[in-house]
Write a protein that binds this DNA or RNA. Structure first.
Lengths: 188, 188
DNA sequence: GCGCTATTAAGACTAGGTACTAATAGTAGT
DNA sequence: ACTACTATTAGTACCTAGTCTTAATAGCGC
């Protein structure tokens, strides 16, 4: 069935978006026009040729693979630690930390920064988080840097159970506050 | 510098693995041999041509995208959701989730599973965590599967603020319990 | 020099295009 | 009906990054 030029072109855009691996010949058949018409359409709509389309898709994959490797491992960069006393770390919010819809950082990354800082702060091989009480006071956006400051509030003599307060800031604004209770395997 | 055939071929395999977007001509220059030699090498080693290599990389991306669309930004695999009511997800603890020293899962991964499940549970485009009260009741080890169960406890009429309880289990043992208070942009 | 492997070259062909020129079909305005 | 204009189609030369095939040459062991 023949359609108008406009109609065909908007369908063309959609078709290529859905199935990017389609050749001009297949498109010509699909829309019952000549291959030349399809090529004129692509020219007008600035849609690159099949092989270029495939290449950009493939490039995206490679970039993603490189990116997704180190992310899970490192949660912020430790700037300063005084064991069993206080510690500071910094985390820059990158695209992989945010909700795609609104560019707001997902809560668990703020938590992860604070939690790993609390763990690093404790002078023990086997520190674990037991409880936490956390508060997200303001949303953090793509590109912002979070500075998390952790402070040991109390170490119980017998059990070694340690209370840590973590406050995270973007510039001077408080974005996260957490109260952590940590286990440790050996007493201090 | 010229190398023996064997040496060149093993380097060729490695080079193509690292930089799959390399043409025969570039490879020929790199190894100081003719294009034909590179083609004979690829033939012997059953390495497909550049365009085929790009295509397979791109196909992988598309498959991944299809896969990651419904799960989108959830940590763990969603098993069941009833919006604004309850949801269940599963997370298998892999080497990247644990402390290397003792094979125990880092707390923030349990939190991330619970937090993203609470977000996914809410029938709103813009759900955010406001507060959380969490408790790590037992340590989870490498290879174990965590089943997180989330339940909406209360939705405030005016603000839409939603209370979610998440309990996570390894088999029948409770490993994590969290009380989440969530914002939403539009009221229900 | 003979035999062998490795390498290089040359030619014909392929897919999936680009770039350009030119012809034709169909429709609207006057 | 004639003209103007857009849309479509056709055809040619050229491109990249190959394939497949045949053939020539280089280097080495013995």
């Amino acid at each position: 069935m023949r359609r108008s030029k406009k109609e065909r072109q908007s369908l063309l855009v959609q078709t290529i978006k859905e199935t990017p691996f389609i050749t001009d010949e297949e498109l010509a058949e699909k829309f019952s026009v000549s291959v030349q018409t399809i090529r004129l359409d692509r020219l007008e709509l600035s849609i690159p040729e099949l092989r270029e389309r495939i290449k950009t898709v493939a490039k995206k994959t490679l970039e993603d693979e490189v990116k997704s490797l180190p992310i899970e491992e490192v949660i912020g960069e430790i700037i300063d630690v005084e064991l069993d006393s206080s510690a500071i770390s910094m985390l820059e919010i990158m695209p992989e930390h945010v909700f795609k819809r609104n560019g707001i950082a997902r809560g668990h990354h703020l938590f992860a920064q604070a939690n790993s800082l609390a763990v690093a702060l404790i002078n023990d091989d086997l520190a674990l988080t037991a409880k936490a009480n956390i508060h997200f006071t303001s949303s953090v956006k793509l590109g912002e840097r979070i500075i998390a400051k952790a402070k040991v509030m109390n170490i119980e003599e017998k059990s070694g159970r340690t209370t840590v307060e973590v406050s995270s800031f973007v510039q001077s604004e408080l974005v996260f506050k957490g109260h952590f209770e940590m286990y440790r395997s050996k007493n201090k």
